[in-house]
Design a protein around this nucleic acid. Structure first.
Length: 659
RNA sequence: GGGCUCAUAGCUCAGUUGGAUAGAGCAACGGAUUUCUAAUCCGUAGGUCGUAGGUUCGAAUCCUACUGGGCCUGCCA
C-alpha cells in the first residue's frame, strides 16, 4: 500500500499538463508529503508556493488550477486549499477500509516487494573477539541488524557480514598471558573465562606501566600548562579589553585542569594496581609488556608455529563465547569473514595500490595521499606491518568480487568517520565507482552524567551483565505477582523467564533504536525498562492486548473465525486514525531506509500502539453495538497486532502472547 | 593549529530533508476504573529551537560569525 506514489501519480498527470519543465514537475512531486498538521490533512502538497515564480502566477491561483484538474475523488474525502497555497488531502475512510481489507493478514501485511531490488552488503557489529563485548557493541549490532532486516523485508538482496577483529593485538596479549601467567586448571575447566582473565590482567599491567612511565611527562605537562596560564594572565592584565587574551586565558586554564585531571586519573590507576600484589610483582617481572605483546602479535602474523597453534586453539573458543551473546540477542550473520581471513591478501592490496599509482613510500611507510586530507592513509607501517586501513581495502575488494554489491553499508561509530571518508576516496580511485559506500555512523553511548558510559572505576561496561540487569528488572515489573493477578494471568516459572528475557532484551534494543542513530544518547536503564512511555514494553504490551482480544473472540460463537473473512469498515474517528496509520506501514519502512534511520520505525510503532490504546479505550470490540462492527474491529485489531509484530521483528525485538 | 559534529520544554529525545500555531515521552498538576489486562485513556501547564547576522514567499532546518560541549587529527582499531 503505497499512498504516496499513488498520490504522486495523480498529481503528475495534472502537473505534466500544466508545466512543460520535467525537472520542475519532479521537484514538485517531491513536495507531496504526509501532513505535518494531522488535524488539517492526511497528506499535503506544498507545490504552489515554489511554482509561483517560475510560472509567474500567484500561488493560490496555481493551487486552484491544480486542484480543479486533479482526479482524486475515489481516494480522497476532501481536497482543499489553505493558507498560502497548501493543498490539503484528506483520505476517504471508504478507500482506506478497502485498502485494509485488501491487505492480506499474512506476515507481509500488504507491504509490496520493491520493483527495483538492490544488493546491499551490511557490515555491522564487528567486535574484537577475545575481548569481552561491551555496551558500545550494542549500537552497531542492533542498528545494523535492524537495517539489514528492513532492507531484506522490502525485497532487497542483503548480505550481512560480521567483520570480526580476530587477528589483532588482543591475541598478542592472550598469547603472552597464556605463556606466562596461565592457571592451567582454570584453563582446562573454563578456557574462555581464563583467557578473558589473562586479557584483563595483561591490559591492566600495560596500563599501569604506561601510567608510571608517563608520570614525569604529565608533571611536565602541568608545569607547561600552568606557565601558559601565567603568561595569559599577564597579557590580560596588560590589555584587559583584548578578547583574544581572555579567550587564551580560558583555554589555558582548561588545559591546566585537563592536565591535573589526567594526572589524578593515572595516579588512581597506579594506586589501584599497586593495591594488588600479584599484579604489581607480575608487572615488575615483565617490564615493557607492551613491546612484548606486540612481538607476540608480530610472530603470529609471521606465521610462527607456536603462536599460530595457540591462535587456532583460542579462536574457536572465543567465537563460541561471542556466538552465545549473539544467540541471546537473536542476531545472525550470513558471513563472518574476520580480519584473519584477509591476512594473506594484504600484500596484493599494496601491490595493486602501487600498480594504480596510488601508493607512495613516505618516511619509511607506504601511504596513499588524498586531496582534501592533511594526513595520508597509511597502508603499511615502517616495520612492514599492515593496518586496519589495509584490511578494509582488502575486504572491500573481496566483497566487490564475491557479491557485486550496489551499496556497502558500514555501521560503525562516528569517531571513525574520517577513516571511512579516506577509505571511500581510495576505493573510488581504485575504480569501484559503481558501488555506493556509506558509513552508517552512530553516536556515543553516554552515562547519566553525559560522559561516555563507564563504570564508576572508569572501565567499560560489559554487555552481558547489562543484559542480565535488564532482564532482572523486566522480571521485577512484568512478572510482578500483583499485576499478573489483576490481569488475570497465571504464569509458570518458565513463562515468566521467557517474558522477562524478551521484555528486558527488547528494552535495551528499543532504547537504542528509538534514538536518531547520529546523535549521542544517554543510557538510562531505569527509563528503558519503564513499562510506560516510548518503550519496547509498551508496544509489546499493546501486542499482547490484541492477542488477548482475539483469544477471547474465539470463545464467542458470533465471532469465532468469522472475523477473518469480515470487512473492515472504519467509522469512529479513532478507528479512521488507526486505519490510516496501518496503511502507512510500507511508506514508513521506505522512509526509514532512505537514510537508514531505524528510529523512524520505532516512532511509527509507538504511534501505532498509542492509537490502538485510544481505540481500545473508545471502541468496544467484543461488546460492540452490532456484530458487523465487532467483526470489523476484530479484524482491525488483528491487523494492528500483525503490524506491531512485524515491525518489532524487523528491529530484532520479539513479542509475547500475553503479559 | 586544522577538520568533523552537536546545542530544541525541568529531564530524555523527535522533528518526513525549507512549509501552516515547533512535537512526543518522563517528571508535575487535574480527571476517568464494579476494565474486552489501569503496563491504560482524556485533559492542563511547560519554548527567545545556544547568540547575532544573512539567504527567500517561508528557517529549528541552508550560509557566515560568535559562545559552549563532544570527537578526530602520520604509523591502534
Amino acid at each position: 500500500m503505497q499512498i504516496l506514489s499513488l498520490l504522486r501519480e495523480r498529481f503528475a498527470a495534472v502537473l505534466n499538463d500544466l508545466i512543460d519543465n520535467p525537472q520542475l514537475v519532479a521537484s514538485s512531486l517531491e513536495r507531496i508529503v504526509p501532513s505535518r498538521e494531522p488535524q488539517l490533512a492526511d497528506y499535503q502538497a506544498n507545490i504552489a508556493m515554489p511554482l509561483a515564480k517560475p510560472l509567474g502566477k500567484p500561488p493560490l491561483e496555481i493551487a486552484k488550477s491544480v486542484v480543479d484538474r486533479l482526479k482524486l475523488d475515489d481516494v480522497c474525502e476532501t481536497v482543499s486549499i489553505a493558507g498560502a497555497g497548501y493543498i490539503n488531502l484528506k483520505l476517504s475512510p471508504k478507500w482506506m477500509s478497502r485498502q485494509l481489507n485488501n491487505a492480506t493478514c499474512d506476515d507481509r501485511i500488504g507491504v509490496e516487494r520493491t520493483t527495483d531490488p538492490k544488493t546491499f552488503v551490511v557490515d555491522y557489529s564487528s567486535p574484537n573477539v577475545a575481548k569481552p563485548m561491551h555496551v558500545g557493541h550494542i549500537r552497531s549490532t542492533v542498528i545494523g541488524a535492524a537495517i539489514a532486516n528492513t532492507l531484506r523485508f522490502l525485497g532487497h538482496r542483503v548480505i550481512t557480514d560480521n567483520h570480526l577483529g580476530d587477528w589483532g593485538t588482543q591475541f598478542g596479549m592472550i598469547i603472552y598471558g597464556y605463556k606466562h601467567f596461565r592457571d592451567e586448571s582454570a584453563y582446562q575447566s573454563q578456557p574462555v573465562a581464563e583467557l578473558s582473565r589473562l586479557y584483563r590482567h595483561i591490559q591492566a599491567m600495560i596500563a599501569y606501566q604506561e601510567a608510571v612511565a608517563n608520570l614525569p611527562k604529565m608533571d611536565a605537562n602541568i608545569q607547561q600548562a600552568s606557565h601558559r596560564v601565567d603568561l595569559a594572565k599577564k597579557k590580560l592584565e596588560e590589555t584587559p579589553q583584548d578578547k583574544k587574551a581572555a579567550k587564551e586565558l580560558q583555554a589555558a586554564q582548561n588545559k591546566l585542569q585537563e592536565a591535573h585531571d589526567d594526572l589524578a586519573a593515572k595516579q588512581e590507576l597506579i594506586a589501584q594496581a599497586e593495591s594488588s600484589p600479584t599484579l604489581l610483582s607480575d608487572a615488575k617481572m615483565h617490564p615493557d609488556l607492551n613491546s612484548a605483546v606486540l612481538a607476540e602479535t608480530a610472530a603470529l602474523h609471521r606465521g610462527e608455529k607456536e603462536n599460530l597453534a595457540l591462535w587456532n586453539e583460542f579462536l574457536p573458543r572465543c567465537l563460541d563465547e561471542i556466538h552465545a551473546v549473539y544467540d541471546r540477542l537473536g542476531t545472525r550473520f550470513d558471513y563472518e569473514y574476520g580480519e584473519s581471513f584477509y591476512h594473506d591478501l594484504l600484500g596484493s592490496v599494496i601491490e595493486e595500490l602501487f600498480a594504480k599509482s596510488l601508493a607512495v613510500p613516505s618516511n619509511g611507510a607506504i601511504c596513499v595521499f588524498l586531496d582534501g586530507f592533511d594526513a595520508p592513509m597509511i597502508v603499511q607501517k615502517q616495520d612492514g606491518a599492515y593496518l586496519y586501513a589495509t584490511t578494509d581495502i582488502a575486504t572491500a575488494m573481496f566483497r566487490e568480487r564475491e557479491f557485486e554489491p550496489d551499496a556497502c553499508l558500514y555501521v560503525v561509530d562516528h569517531r571513525q568517520s574520517e577513516h571511512f571518508k579516506k577509505l571511500f576516496a581510495v576505493l573510488e580511485k581504485m575504480g569501484y565507482q559503481h558501488t555506493q559506500f556509506k558509513h552508517i555512523s552512530f553516536g556515543t553511548v553516554l552515562g547519566k552524567d553525559g560522559k561516555p558510559f563507564k563504570t564508576r572505576s572508569g572501565s567499560t561496561v560489559g554487555l552481558e551483565p547489562l543484559l542480565d540487569e535488564a532482564v532482572e528488572r523486566a522480571w521485577a515489573v512484568a512478572c510482578d505477582p500483583n499485576r499478573l493477578q489483576v490481569a488475570g494471568i497465571e504464569m509458570d516459572e518458565s513463562e515468566k523467564r521467557q517474558v522477562a528475557e524478551i521484555v528486558g532484551i527488547g528494552a535495551i534494543k528499543y532504547a537504542d533504536l528509538s534514538h536518531n542513530r547520529e546523535s549521542n544518547y544517554v543510557f538510562d536503564m531505569d527509563k528503558m525498562v519503564q513499562l510506560e512511555g516510548n518503550t519496547a514494553a509498551y508496544i509489546q504490551y499493546s501486542y499482547a492486548r490484541t492477542r488477548s482480544i482475539l483469544r477471547k473472540a474465539e470463545t464467542q460463537e458470533w465471532a469465532r473465525e468469522k472475523w477473518e473473512t469480515a470487512t473492515i469498515d472504519l467509522q469512529a474517528p479513532v478507528e479512521i486514525a488507526l486505519g490510516l496509520q496501518l496503511i502507512r506501514f510500507e511508506e514508513t519502512l521506505k522512509h526509514s531506509m532512505q537514510d537508514y534511520l531505524p528510529n523512524v520505525i520505532t516512532e511509527y510503532l509507538f504511534d501505532t500502539a498509542k492509537l490502538f490504546s485510544s481505540f481500545f479505550d473508545q471502541c468496544p470490540v467484543l461488546k460492540a453495538e452490532t456484530e458487523a462492527i465487532g467483526l470489523s474491529r476484530l479484524k482491525l485489531t488483528h491487523l494492528v497486532g500483525q503490524t506491531l509484530k512485524v515491525g518489532l521483528d524487523l528491529l530484532g525485538i520479539q513479542v509475547i502472547e500475553r503479559m
